[in-house]
Structures are given as C-alpha cells and as structure tokens.
Amino acid sequence: MSIQHFRVALIPFFAAFCLPVFAHPETLVKVKDAEDQLGARVGYIELDLNSGKILESFRPEERFPMMSTFKVLLCGAVLSRVDAGQEQLGRRIHYSQNDLVEYSPVTEKHLTDGMTVRELCSAAITMSDNTAANLLLTTIGGPKELTAFLHNMGDHVTRLDRWEPELNEAIPNDERDTTMPAAMATTLRKLLTGELLTLASRQQLIDWMEADKVAGPLLRSALPAGWFIADKSGAGERGSRGIIAALGPDGKPSRIVVIYTTGSQATMDERNRQIAEIGASLIKHW
C-alpha cells in the first residue's frame, strides 16, 4: 500500500482519535458579512469528516447552483462504474471539434489522439474542462443518470439537468442544476469515506481534487503551510461562485467545507476574496 493510499485508508482512524471539535460562531459572522459585502445569498456548511456531524452552517438547506462543483460527483459516478466493471479508466475516447464547448483548455489539445477516461476526469476536476465533463456525462448516460446515481446514494436534493455550459445559467428560483450545502457536503463525505467506492477509487477521487489547479484564489489562499486540501470550485452566471473541499491540518483532511453564493453584482475577484476570507476565519478558529 502506498503512503497516499495509507493516508486515505486511515482518515477515519486518525479522526477518531482527534480531540473533540467545537464550532466557532466567528466564522458564521464572516459568512454573514460576506453576504453584506456581496449583496447576495451565501450558503455555508462545515462537517466533521469522521462523524458527519454538522459543526457550523448557514442557509444549509437553500438551493444554490452547483456550477462546476458537480464534476466531482460526476467522476465519482464514473469511478463507481469502474468498480462495477462497467468502465475502464484506460479506455480512450475520441471526439471532434464539434464536441468542444466553451472553456476546454485540455480537451482542445487532444482532438487528434483523444483522451482516456482517467485523463478526462483529471481534466474535468483539476482544470474544470467543460468538454471533458460533457464527454464523461455521455459515458454514464447524461445528466439524468448522474441525478439517479445521487438518488441511489441517498441524495434526493442534488440534481443535474443540463450539460456544460448551460448548467451554469443560475436563474433565480430555478431548481435545475442545483444542490443544497448540506446535501453536497453529505454526498461528498460519502464519496470520500464511505463504502460506495473502493479504496482505490476513493484515493483516485481525492487525488484529482488535491491536484486542483484553478481554485488557488479561494480556500487555498488562506491555508497555512502543512495543511491538506482537496477541492473543486465552480463559477456561473449572475454572480455565482462555489467551492467544495476536504481539508485539515497535519497533512490530512478532517472536515468537509461547502460554500456557495449566487445573485451578486460583485466582480469575480471580490467573490473570490470573500470566500478566501471565510476560509481564513475557519482556519483561525479551527
């Protein structure tokens, strides 16, 4: 067993022997301040990774656009098919120029040779490549099948209805392509620590998230040296922004954090800054 596999296998073990965790309302004060600064709703939840206990939450059962955070769930569904012998990570998928959609920095470079399922998941999570996500959605049967996968996990809230990039439209009061912070946090925890996926697939999923290259201005910008984070960000229309993450000190994750916002007129930089400040408060009061 590799060191990384050992780390993920012992996530519940280490967490069980940690000192009790206590909620700190100071972080919620910052979440509410972010709402004021952005002029928009902000949803927040913080779960203990081992027990699933909610440590703090704000608007945990209000719907927010998922945006690209759905790509972690998508690759979880792909990995479940791999575990069941219905898919192979090494299978190569070929596609054409007509398949390319807006923001496809990886797939646009491989029109000639195609990409493997493993490479597509890596591109979808680490670079948020939209064509990679659409190609992977095709392998599982489309958005409705991802929703069905989530329902089978016990998540009857999260739903995907459309493809990239239309799913980022974020129309107010439109339930399409949305989740709730509580539902997303619980589902992410199941994917990373539950028995739904094999140990190898859980490790692969967290490795992809740990290698995320496009979430630097968010929670990662607030992390002290030595902290662990595996995350996936999302951005959408109407001032929408979000991030889902597993993080913790001492090089291992111990909490799940989900943050979503929508309806702001603020710039992307300002949305990023507010999420980073929430992260800084979380870490300060850990």
Rank of each mutant, 00 (worst) to 15 (best):
I45E: 05
A170Y: 12
A124V: 08
N134R: 04
P181N: 01
Q97W: 11
A235T: 06
G279W: 03
L146W: 05
R271Y: 03
A148R: 14
K144H: 10
R220G: 04
E87W: 05
I171C: 14
S104L: 01
E270Q: 14
G236P: 00
F6S: 08
V42Q: 01
T179Q: 00
L247M: 15
P172V: 12
S104C: 07
A230M: 07
T69Y: 03
R271H: 07
E87D: 09
R162T: 08
S80W: 12
A170K: 06
A246E: 06
R238D: 07
T178A: 05
H94P: 09
V257Y: 05
E102P: 14
A230I: 07
E46R: 04
L191M: 14
H151K: 14
S51D: 15
G154E: 09
L247T: 06
G263H: 07
H151D: 09
R41I: 09
T262Q: 07
K32N: 10
L38N: 06
L146R: 00
E210M: 10
T69F: 01
I54E: 11
V21G: 08
R176Y: 07
T158E: 00
S264R: 05
T131K: 02
D48P: 02
L192E: 02
D48F: 03
R255F: 02
L192C: 08
E35T: 03
Q265A: 15
V101Y: 08
R118Y: 15
G226L: 05
V21W: 05
A235Q: 04
D231Y: 04
V82W: 07
I125M: 11
E61M: 14
A225K: 14
T69V: 03
V21M: 05
E87C: 07
H24C: 09
T178R: 02
G142M: 02
G76F: 05
M268I: 10
R63K: 09
H5P: 08
S96W: 12
L47K: 04
R41G: 05
E166I: 13
V101G: 07
V157I: 12
Y260P: 00
M153W: 15
T147M: 07
A148F: 12
T186K: 13
L49G: 05
A183F: 08
N173Q: 15
S51V: 06
V101W: 06
V101N: 07
R162L: 05
E195V: 07
G154W: 04
Q97T: 13
T158I: 02
D113K: 12
T112H: 14
V29D: 13
T267R: 12
L136H: 01
R241A: 04
Q204N: 14
H285A: 09
T187H: 05
L55I: 13
I256A: 05
V42D: 00
N50P: 15
H24F: 10
A15I: 14
M184K: 01
T193G: 15
K30R: 12
F64S: 01
K252I: 11
T107V: 08
L205S: 01
L10V: 12
T187Q: 05
E164F: 00
F13K: 04
D36Y: 12
T186N: 13
D129S: 01
V42N: 04
K190N: 14
R41M: 11
G90A: 13
R255T: 05
R189N: 11
I256E: 01
M1H: 01
Q203F: 08
I45H: 05
Y44W: 03
R220N: 03
E102C: 07
P217H: 10
I206W: 13
A200Q: 15
T261I: 12
V78K: 02
A235P: 00
S2E: 05
S221M: 11
E166S: 13
P217D: 14
L55W: 07
G248E: 01
N168T: 07
A9V: 10
I11F: 12
S57H: 13
D212V: 04
T107C: 09
W286E: 02
W163C: 11
L120E: 01
K213F: 10
F14Q: 03
L28Q: 08
Q86E: 12
A266S: 13
L38A: 07
G39K: 15
H151A: 14
D113G: 11
K232M: 00
D269K: 12
L137F: 09
F13D: 01
S221I: 10
T107P: 01
R238F: 14
A123E: 04
I54F: 11
P253K: 08
V82R: 07
L146Q: 04
T27N: 05
Q97P: 14
D36H: 11
Q37W: 13
K232Y: 00
D269T: 11
N98S: 13
S264M: 05
R202F: 03
V117K: 01
E145H: 09
L146Y: 06
V8N: 15
M127L: 12
G85F: 06
E166V: 12
D207Q: 13
C75V: 10
E210T: 10
S96M: 10
E102A: 13
C18P: 05
A15C: 15
G239F: 02
L135A: 06
G242Q: 02
E46V: 08
F149A: 08
L120F: 04
M1A: 02
P217L: 08
M115D: 01
K284N: 11
M184Y: 08
L111G: 06
E166L: 14
E35R: 03
H156A: 14
L218H: 03
F22R: 10
D83F: 02
T193R: 15
C121L: 05
N98V: 11
G141V: 04
I229H: 02
G76M: 05
R91N: 08
A133I: 00
Y103I: 04
C121N: 02
V31Y: 01
C121V: 03
M1N: 01
A183V: 13
H5Q: 12
W208V: 02
D231M: 04
H24T: 15
G90P: 08
R271T: 11
G142R: 03
I256N: 01
A77H: 10
L49Q: 05
L160Q: 07
S240H: 06
N173L: 14
H24Y: 09
W227A: 02
A34R: 02
E108T: 09
W286M: 07
G216L: 08
T178G: 03
L247F: 05
K190Q: 12
F228Y: 14
G263V: 04
I283M: 11
Q274W: 15
H110E: 07
H156G: 15
R7H: 13
S68T: 00
V42S: 03
P165R: 07
M153T: 11
A170Q: 07
T158S: 12
L47V: 13
E237I: 10
E175T: 15
R81G: 06
L79W: 01
H285I: 04
D83T: 05
K53G: 11
G239L: 01
P224I: 03
E169G: 14
L55K: 08
P172I: 12
T112G: 15
L89V: 06
L100D: 02
T178K: 02
I275G: 01
L74V: 11
